[in-house]
Simulated assay, not measured.
Amino acid sequence: MAKVGSPMNPSAEKIAATKPTAVYSVTTLKDQFDKSFKQQHITPHFLNLQTVADLQHVVTQMGQRYDRQRAARQANAEIKAAIRTAQQRSHRRSKPRVLVLMGLPGAGYMIGTSKSYVGDLVRLAGGRNVFTSKTQEYIQPNDEAIQNAQPQVILRLEHAMPKLVTSQFQQEFKKSIWQQTPAVKSKRVYDLQEPDFDATANMHVARALRRVSDWLYPEE
């Protein structure tokens, strides 16, 4: 199999050399790669995978396009079952306050809002994201806002260079701001890594949702 670069830095020239019949990427990378693809006369399909519902829609589309409708229905049925289970688990229970963080290799972290993919998992699992937004998936951290939010659960996404990002988070969480949060005091800080978790939805979404549900509503 031809190597065409890294996931976050593919070579449009090398991709073009393989003469693909179709090229797929995600909408979050369109601004970054669209120009280089066009220079190679490639028209990629940018898939919207920002939420679980978006993923289900894409799965249905792909099933139709590649004559895999049965497999698509099975995949979506598994996702729907995971959603039902999570909703049943959280029914009539107090919503925990959840803080989502996305680690950036060598550059700290960002806060994941309700608009982010992990934020969508939190919503489906019955949690309340302490940072909401109608337009922004990620925002700059603010120590005062984090302290005021008093998160009961913290989810740390470490999808890129997880060893480095995990180490960064471990150092960051030694600071007093974190030690004073309810989540740290009750040891409810969880690390999210591939393959189950990513910045956009993937085919591990059912398992990812089950894990988030377990963290938000642990067995008593």
Rank of each mutant, 00 (worst) to 15 (best):
V58C: 09
S11M: 04
N76Q: 00
W178N: 06
W178V: 08
L49P: 11
I83G: 06
D54H: 08
A160H: 12
P182D: 06
K80A: 14
T27Y: 02
F37P: 05
T21F: 10
Y109E: 13
T200Y: 09
N148G: 05
F173T: 15
Y217E: 00
N148D: 11
E158G: 07
Q179K: 10
L155C: 02
S25P: 01
W215I: 06
L216E: 00
K19C: 03
T166W: 09
H204R: 09
Q171A: 12
K185Y: 07
T166G: 12
V122D: 02
G106P: 11
G63N: 01
R123S: 13
P195W: 00
Q69L: 10
D214C: 06
M102P: 02
A81R: 11
F37R: 05
H41F: 04
D54K: 02
E219P: 05
V100L: 00
R207L: 13
A149H: 03
L216K: 08
A107R: 10
A12F: 02
A145M: 04
N202I: 08
S36R: 04
S90Q: 07
A125Y: 00
G5R: 07
N202T: 08
L47K: 01
A16W: 03
T27R: 12
S133L: 11
D31G: 13
Q168R: 05
I177G: 06
M102D: 10
Q87T: 06
K174D: 13
Q87E: 11
Q152W: 00
I146P: 01
R68Q: 15
G106S: 01
E219K: 11
D198W: 00
R73Y: 11
F46P: 00
F37D: 03
K134Y: 12
K95P: 01
P44D: 12
K30V: 11
V100M: 04
T43C: 02
Q170W: 07
P10L: 04
L124D: 04
L101Q: 14
S25N: 12
A201I: 02
V130S: 01
P182H: 09
A125D: 10
Q74F: 00
N202G: 10
E219I: 14
V100W: 05
A86Q: 04
K14G: 07
Q152F: 04
F173M: 15
N129L: 03
A71P: 06
V118I: 14
V165L: 04
P20F: 08
F169I: 09
V52G: 11
M203Y: 07
V118A: 05
D196C: 07
H159S: 15
